[in-house]
Amino acid sequence: MLQIRYVWEWPVRLTHWFNVISIIALAVTGIYIGNPNISVPETGSFVMGWMRMVHFGFAYLFSVSVIVRLLWMFIGNEYASWRAFMPWLTKEGWSHIVGTFCYYTFLRRKVPYVVGHNALAAMAYSFVFLLFAVQVISGFSLYGQYDPNGLWASVTAPFLSLFGNQVLRLTHHMITWLLIGFAIHHVYSAWLMDVKEKNGTLSSIFGGYKFIDPKDL
């Protein structure tokens, strides 16, 4: 019998979609800020001004969203827990890592069936959260330079003095592209699992429910 299971609690879904919206807005405005290529004949325009305004606004939204999701790793259910993102800590996790890897590389026929994140996806998300952290820190370090006596400048001073702002700028820029690459992979994998597992993977991030056959587990 198929069971209906509530897998993704509402804070997980909400932060996921806030992240999606923020990353799209931040990537679009960020690529413009890095290389402004819109022709602006009118001197009275405020194109870069608005781009930066939107970028900074979504930067705050994204940061809050990431922080809430990180906190939820310690509050939420087992699928949201920080343990789920570190499959390498358990023996069972290792077998899932190997199993999923073999499936993805066409070495194994059946996909390892799990309720929450599959092991490889969980590891990818751990890395992505690391990238998020670097983006937030490098972003606010560069942002804080508008006021060297301000709050952000005092918080981020160690990163600026350690790496220098040009290195932070390049890092911030390159991670954007890595996250774009991740987004492509993420949407593809979600589609693949939706097709292969047939348990409502794609709809689960909207509604939170998956359809699980306990016999498959």
Binding site: R109, K110, M174, L178, F182, I184
Partner: peptide
């Protein structure tokens, strides 16, 4: 380089998708 990374990702997963779509025997029960 960034565009290269994004394009390579798209191409790699596109190819993987074609191969996966052709697999018929790997569905869960």
């Amino acid at each position: 380089i960034g565009l290269g990374i994004a394009a390579a990702t798209a191409v790699a997963f596109g190819a993987h998708g074609v191969a996966s779509a052709l697999r018929k025997d790997d569905n869960s029960d």
